[in-house]
Design a binder for these strands. Structure first.
Lengths: 331, 331
DNA sequence: AGCTTGATTGTTAGCGCTCACATCTAGCTC
DNA sequence: GAGCTAGATGTGAGCGCTAACAATCAAGCT
């Protein structure tokens, strides 16, 4: 920086001002400094800046390491959104979302003086851990616990479930069965709630839930083996596409044809779901929008000076129904 | 740090020594310092350390943002491996892996004084971009161009392809057709090469390749529509599981049964592949091992002082065949 | 005792930046 | 022309840490 200053014939402070777009710099000076920067190939040292300002241009993300489609998509989308806003993303992948791992991850981020923290926290164990993070840390949750008093951005699970269930009802099914995701996921709960409310609102009977123990096709297959044995089952809303895939296979094995005898709707719109047999009608969450919104919330948190927002905002991003061929056509 | 030093009755430098596990600290002193650290809840400021040492405990990853199974798994695995080694991971997701985006991502990492850079660089456009990174930057490629003189860790694509092709041949198929991945991916090339060599080594005829334009089930479906029309096709090696899924569907639509009339092997072992119809025999890359190895290479790069390694190491991690039901049983 | 040795601890400087403040200029008013 | 303002620039300190060196001390030797 001193070299740049010398070459431009100004003080280091003026260089700093140019770098940070401070208003009071004469245009002529600015150009001269910029030229010197270019000539010397100077790149500011972010560590030094972080040291003095107390924050780096980094956003810390805490996420359970997984290749599950939802979290992975969210992470990818968030990375893009941050890069566009000029923030680096430091990811702390943790194996288990338990209190200890979580706290360690947050603290590591804090040591690095991240500007803010985003937690992809779809399961319960995360929420109690979040409580233990100091209030003044700018933290926003994605897909987290709505009862925790922190800004939260989620896919509108209930709305997605409503879309799916309503679609099935509209096609003339008397009721809709539900294979739910694992109970500790907020996603599962939201989808159950949306499904149930849609049924009761429509005056339809609410059949018992078939709970899956994880999001895998294997679990879907298990549930499917039950569903296939029950002649009265004509419509199923699966909590995600992979569960739906397993159900599809179980149904196929027992000769129950989709969509002629049974209609199915999934959730997630995984890229390959259009090529299941048959192509799966599903609900597409808008991950990009979720990512952008959560980034916006963190950044707002930063710009607002001292007082933390009184009402932590909750934002739900409504998903969209993608119609394919796993639901019987209107007659 | 000064507070800790005062409380422990030592100098700040001794605190620093304890923190960095320097040898010459008396045990009694060490304990006292540790106690003071605990009592004060002191956490070292990594930015300050990065400033003075010139490197942060961060490893920068450059990856094309995508939810493709391979890259996503690699990224997740690398995150875990780094966390275990005490390194934070800063991810620069870029939309396009072109020279400009790539260079910007690398420079951003360099500004942050990352300890090393890992590039998940499965396509050609990345390799020329890598050439422009200064030689002395510790950089290792994952799944990158073998002709670039940089340390490289890859899944052993050719070996995986050999496993798949050999398996099909062993089950009595005269030859094996191949639906390849997009041409600009090194993965595709390695798999093609392994497939072709296995066939020629076995004296089998080498049928024309059906190239897919991307890794999607949609592309697999297109290729499958061709394959289904050719009665002589009895065995197919698909360059990944999602292509295989599309092929499966095309075959199913035209009444060609798998595995009775056509056998298929995929690549990737995506979690749901066991629930395709029929369950897919596939090749499982050892992503964890790839991640661990690449981390090891970066860290070696660091410890070796000044002289960069003369021979950049290339490491291939052999994958494993996972047998399921998409290949006809031995007669 | 006087000297060396090595282990342990303290002292000083400075990494590259930003902040708070001091200074300087030009343009205005009266 | 003195006095003021506001914009443009410079100065000095210090963020929290580590590297290099200096200082201390106990132990072992001649």
């Amino acid at each position: 920086m001193t070299d740049v200053a010398a070459l431009a014939g100004v003080s280091h402070q003026t260089v700093s001002r140019v770098l940070n777009n401070h208003p009071n710099v004469r245009e002529r000076t600015r150009v001269r400094v910029l030229a010197a920067i270019a000539e010397l190939g100077y790149r500011p040292n972010r560590a030094a800046k972080a040291l003095v300002t107390g924050r780096s241009q980094i956003i810390g993300v805490v996420a359970q390491s997984s290749t599950l489609f939802g979290p992975a998509s969210l992470l990818a989308a968030f990375g893009i959104a941050s890069a566009e806003a000029g923030f680096a993303v430091s990811v702390a992948s943790i194996r288990q979302l338990d209190r200890a791992s979580f706290q360690e991850a947050v603290e590591r981020h804090l040591d690095q003086r991240v500007s803010g923290i985003v937690v992809i926290a779809p399961v319960e164990t995360a929420s109690e851990a979040i409580q233990s993070v100091a209030e003044d840390v700018p933290l926003v949750m994605i897909d987290g616990d709505p009862t925790v008093p922190r800004p939260l951005v989620t896919v509108d699970q209930a709305e997605g479930a409503r879309l799916a269930t309503r679609h099935l009802l509209d096609r003339g099914h008397e009721t809709v069965w539900h294979v739910s995701g694992p109970g500790e996921w907020f996603d599962s709960r939201g989808r159950i709630e949306g499904w149930r409310r849609t049924l009761t609102d429509a005056g339809a009977e609410v059949p018992p839930i078939l709970p899956a123990s994880d999001w895998s096709a294997a679990s879907g297959y298990q549930a499917g083996q039950m569903l296939a044995r029950m002649p009265e089952v004509s419509a199923v809303f699966a909590a995600n596409d992979h569960l739906a895939l397993g159900i599809l296979r179980a149904l196929h094995e027992r000769g129950r044809s989709v969509p002629d005898q049974v209609s199915i709707v999934g959730f997630d719109d995984v890229p390959e779901s259009g090529y299941f047999i048959p192509p799966l009608t599903t609900v597409r969450p808008e991950f990009d929008e979720v990512a952008r919104t959560s980034l916006r919330l963190v950044l707002e948190h930063l710009s607002e000076d001292c007082p933390p927002p009184v009402t932590p905002r909750h934002v739900s991003i409504p998903p969209v129904l993608v119609e394919r061929n796993s639901v019987r056509p209107p007659h």
